[in-house]
Design a binder for these strands. Structure first.
Lengths: 343, 343
DNA sequence: TGTTAGCACTCTTTGTTACCGAGTGCTAAT
DNA sequence: ATTAGCACTCGGTAACAAAGAGTGCTAACA
């Protein structure tokens, strides 16, 4: 559908615009090494490319910039994977250099490094807790009225919540409860806890504890998995340095959306494994009109755990970002698998 | 040092500028209800006020704006406490309406509400963990090599860290360790744990456990209190709506500083109890040149727990913000005292 | 027939000029 | 002591010109 020459010209336009953020004119193009024909020829080809919807003008006599359709084509057909340099690799390795065991911390460091290497904003959707299996429940009474329930999952994730103790419950009662809970629920996926609690544990509690229903509700309430997994960000302010965000209104929209988190969550979550690229309005979000979002997933073994993403202007260094995401997500998966496979 | 009339004029200038963000001229002033003399008179008085350093011009023939010295005087001498309206009070009450027990969540909600009521950025320094006393330590083994240590404090704060298990340690060993730890350390302030651990617990461990030193180090590492207490923010993007931040560079500086957190920490922490006001360069921070920071402390009983603050432009509604901070910090202290006094 | 030189045209950017309005400082009259 | 009046200053806006970058189209060229 596109001739080789059109392809070449298009590629050079996109590459140049990604670098300079300035519309690219025929004269600029004709001076490039890769290009050996005159500006007039280029103008003709550009007119065709524009008619096909790959490039646009900002005004009648301006140079061209890639359209969203153009970026899409560029990303789908013209991208050559970029080789990471020594510095990048070194930086990524440094995520895992320190002996940290907590999943969350590793993930958080990844977000930070990723934003530093790209100068864009990085977003990491933390490890999904819902598939974790319960390792242990513990209850620590603080005083007569309140206690803390703590649950530990097989990946080492810890959740805790305070709750009200029913009256007239003593330490030995609590101990019984904890024993029953661990006995019945250990090993079960967090998702199923609530169900099991009422179906299996309720009966047992009744035999041992007075006012067991109040207690049960408190525990059920405590055990509920958070609806959203944690989001980690890196370089939230990096977008302020991008020329397309010299307009305060755009910045405000974007920042608000980042601050809200819910919107981000929707954008990040529903992605297949591997690399996903959403360009501009493909994100279906007015605050992201000038942005692209590239996501990659990381996993333990075959189980997809979370998502790691870069948010940048549509004029983004796609090739570099994809390479980095691929590299980090692979490393992340490898390290995590090694740490937690045998759980 | 200032005549009554100068005082009046100065006050009206500040009040007007806080509202409009526009330099105030003599004609505008002469039209105000409070003011019954001519613009020429006002001009003379303004010249004096400028000579005294309370107000400034933005250019030779502009109206006047308050100087930093002016704001300082205004805040120290002219502030009349503002009465909160029904809506404000209702909003603040809503922080405590839901039955939440976790300190952190209450504090976080306060930050959110505060930013919504003021349209500035709110910062809350979370409850200091260092003075908490240890309630319970627990260790949950995840697999042969790793375990999680969980500590619970008397205020219900939970910290957890993963650590490497020494080889050849079994469940009963771990149980012994936990018992010893709780026996010896429960009730001690977190700050003193490290010390006690090596002084008192080490001896005991030696008798019961092989390779006790490795274990000890892991535990010591785990028990370390975080150097910084948690910061909570509300309305990080609110500043983008202030006219003084139409300049992207200023926004970038400020946002970066907020994102870093360390700088904020320094600003917030070293404040006496009660209300503290830092205006513009008094903050000693170039990113905050156009900002004022008002802090208040909250406490349980007489023990100062944390700080609650508002970051806004120097042209801030001081009176309203101070009233709000006073009100919230008092409420916060009252509720927290009630919940945790009897710990 | 594909390529290119040339040219008229368009649109943005930049600089100049002029002018209005808001505000000031100073002087002189009240 | 207060104020009316006036000359002056400065920012903002609009109108206009000129420069520069780029385009589309036509006609000449290989």
């Amino acid at each position: 559908m596109l001739t080789d020459r059109q392809l070449l010209i298009f590629q050079v336009i996109v590459d140049d615009f990604i670098q300079t953020a300035q519309p690219v004119g025929s004269r600029t193009l004709s001076k490039k090494e890769e290009i050996s024909f005159s500006s007039a020829t280029i103008r003709n080809e550009m007119a065709d490319l524009e008619e096909l919807g790959f490039i646009e003008k900002t005004h009648t006599s301006s140079g061209r910039i890639p359209s969203e359709k153009g970026y899409r084509y560029y990303v789908d057909h013209l991208l050559s994977p970029q080789k990471l340099n020594q510095y990048d690799i070194h930086k990524v390795q440094s995520i895992f250099a320190e002996r940290i065991y907590e999943l969350e911390k590793i993930v958080q460091r990844s977000a930070k490094i990723l934003s530093e290497l790209t100068n864009y904003t990085s977003i990491v959707l933390g490890p999904a807790v819902r598939d974790n299996k319960l390792k242990k429940i513990q209850i620590v009474p603080l005083n007569k009225e309140t206690a803390i329930a703590i649950i530990v999952t097989d990946t080492g994730h810890v959740e805790n919540r305070m709750f009200h103790l029913p009256e007239n419950i003593d330490a030995s009662d609590l101990e019984k409860v904890v024993n029953i809970l661990n006995d019945r629920l250990a090993g079960a996926p967090l998702e199923s806890l609530n169900n099991k609690l009422y179906k299996e544990v309720a009966v047992l509690l009744r035999h041992h504890i007075n006012n067991y229903d109040l207690m049960l509700n408190s525990i059920a309430d405590t055990i509920k998995i958070p609806a959203y997994d944690k989001l980690f960000f890196g370089g939230k302010t990096n977008m302020l340095s991008q020329p397309e965000f010299h307009d305060i209104e755009k910045v405000k929209n974007l920042m608000n959306m980042i601050e809200q988190e819910e919107g981000i969550y929707d954008l990040i979550r529903k992605n297949k494994s591997g690399i996903n690229i959403k360009i501009g309005r493909e994100n279906n979000n007015s605050a992201m009109e000038n942005c692209s979002l590239i996501t990659a997933s990381y996993s333990i073994g075959t189980e997809q755990l979370g998502t790691i993403a870069i948010l940048g202007p549509t004029r983004m260094e796609y090739s570099r970002v994809i390479s980095l995401l691929n590299y980090i997500s692979a490393d992340l998966s490898a390290v995590l698998s090694k740490l937690y496979q045998n759980r």
